[in-house]
């Protein structure tokens, strides 16, 4: 990573951190229903997505705020998913090539593989990247996705963020083996990387994406990370996790590590405080835009079930519309 890209990575990681903290506050204030924080995973998320091209397709789970920030996804539309405004989010998934967020753990790995198979059929040198946690690798769909990707040499990067916990269940209860090693069983390479090291993440993801682009097939990346917070704002992680573990993770904060790296290379303090100011402004803009944003009207629940609503569904829509009156 050159100096500019490193600074850009830091700037986006910081932005993701501040958005993440704000989202937790917004949930506590009743503005969001629930939110799964990702603080601690910024290097894994931001550096990996920055290794891709704009034409590549991102398949996120629901804890991918840093990926969304790295991809330039509209934050208001992203956060509205957590206000219950629209499952999957209200951002433009085609423009950002950032799929609706997947809440069914592990099932979206197959969508990434199918998309990548489709890109290969078209002869396009585009790559899919799919984000998931170590818990998702226990799902059968993950193994089926690895297998299809291997057999069809699909240009896909499997990006597993192993943060050690699937809600309260530790990684050793998910698998007796090491996740990155599974690639070999399916006929493609696996690599384990320090998910707190932005440069290492960027290098591993770049190599995987280039390999896919050359037509050599998938790669499984296991990025070892930590989530500082609970699984979600509805979770109490003090019931299952030692505080010492969180404190250790915070001492190795990926944001702090990258800051030290940049400072050592001569980036002045003023640059960091400018980045902080920029993040503070973005957060306040997000807060304002969320407050101003309307949820889609209730009757829109009917509008995207089929390309055109069958008569019975159109009737149900009009019934709800009538019940709601002018507020529909």
């Amino acid at each position: 990573m050159d100096a500019d890209r490193l600074r850009e990575t830091y700037r986006l990681m910081l932005l993701a951190r501040r958005y993440d903290e704000e989202a937790v506050r917004l949930q506590r204030q009743g503005e969001l229903v629930a939110f799964p924080p990702m603080s601690g995973q910024e290097a894994a998320q931001v550096a990996s997505v920055l290794a891709l091209s704009p034409a590549d397709m991102v398949f996120p789970s629901y804890r991918e705020l840093g990926v969304a920030v790295g991809r330039g996804v509209d934050m208001t539309g992203y956060m509205l998913a957590f206000r219950g405004a629209w499952n999957g989010g209200l951002y433009d998934c085609r423009r950002n090539r950032f799929a609706p967020m997947a809440s069914s753990v592990g099932s979206h790995l197959l969508h990434a593989v199918g998309w990548a198979m489709g890109a290969r059929l078209d002869g396009r040198d585009e790559v899919a990247i799919v984000y998931f946690g170590e818990g998702a690798t226990s799902e059968g769909d993950a193994s089926e996705a690895f297998n299809f990707a291997g057999v069809f040499r699909a240009p896909v990067v499997f990006f597993c963020q192993n943060n050690g916990w699937a809600i309260s269940v530790p990684a050793e209860r998910q698998s007796a083996g090491e996740i990155w090693r599974r690639g070999e069983a399916f006929g493609f390479p696996g690599v384990r990387v320090d998910g707190g090291d932005a440069e290492a993440v960027f290098a591993a993801t770049s190599a995987a994406a280039e390999r896919a682009r050359r037509g050599e097939g998938p790669t499984l990346i296991e990025a070892l990370t930590h989530r500082f917070g609970p699984h979600s704002t509805a979770d109490d992680d003090t019931r299952y996790r030692e505080r010492a573990e969180v404190e250790t993770a915070r001492r190795n904060d990926p944001l702090g590590r990258l800051r030290a790296r940049l400072a050592a290379s001569g980036v002045p303090d003023s640059w960091f405080s400018d980045a902080e100011d920029e993040a503070r402004l973005a957060v306040s803009e997000l807060r304002a835009s969320l407050a101003a944003a309307e949820n889609p009207p209730a009757v829109e629940m009917f509008d995207f079930v089929y390309a055109a609503p069958p008569p019975a569904l159109a009737l149900q829509r009009s019934q709800l519309e009538e019940l709601l009156g002018p507020d529909a």
Binding site: L110, V113, G114, W115, M117, G118, L121, F148
Partner: peptide, 17 residues
């Protein structure tokens, strides 16, 4: 491969593409 969930799951992705 002999994997029905895989068959339908990749169909979703292919449709997206």
């Amino acid at each position: 491969p002999l994997a029905e969930s895989g068959i339908v799951g990749v169909a979703v992705g292919l449709a997206m593409a």
